[in-house]
């Protein structure tokens, strides 16, 4: 059991070695650049904001309070004030079109009063020849 575990770990070691040997030359230079700016940034913090924790406590409180305010006003799951113009326009369009749930589109087609054949805008029925006044 121990030998199987060791063999398994060796296989894992070989696989991860292969992955890292391939990716290391790509990732290491990026890491060097990251270390540079992180060192500069932490040095800036140490030089200018390293006296007491008050600044950090204030930032924490401001972040929490502002998050509460912002996410209550704009929760994102319903139209807030920012969307009201868009919804108004949509309702306007619906009024113009005059779409009603009760209306049946079949009733809108013009039919011949004699034979009932659909005539559209024509004045004479193409089936029975009756004049549509």
């Amino acid at each position: 059991m121990i030998f199987q575990t060791m063999e398994f770990l060796e296989i894992i070691a070989n696989i991860t070695t292969a992955i890292l040997l391939f990716l290391k030359p790509l990732v290491t230079p990026i890491g060097e650049w990251m270390v540079d700016w992180i060192t500069t940034t932490t040095q800036f913090f140490k030089d200018n904001l390293g006296a007491s924790l008050s600044f950090y406590i204030v930032v924490f409180i401001v972040l929490v309070v502002s998050a509460i305010v912002v996410n209550i006003i704009w929760p994102g799951d319903r139209p807030g004030s920012i969307f009201s113009k868009g919804i108004g326009k949509l309702e306007e369009f619906e009024d113009k079109i005059g779409i009603s749930d009760d209306e049946d589109i079949v009733d809108e087609i013009k039919r011949c009063k004699d034979c009932g054949n659909p005539v559209g805008d024509s004045e004479i029925c193409p089936l029975c020849g009756a004049r549509q006044i």
């Binding site: 770990l9 894992i12 070691a13 991860t16 070695t17 992955i19 890292l20 990716l23 990732v27």
Partner: peptide
């Protein structure tokens, strides 16, 4: 995830 896992695995196996 693969890269992070590889580095972590190598670190653990190195310690082992």
């Amino acid at each position: 995830a693969v890269l992070t896992l590889s580095v972590t695995t190598v670190s653990i196996l190195g310690g082992l």
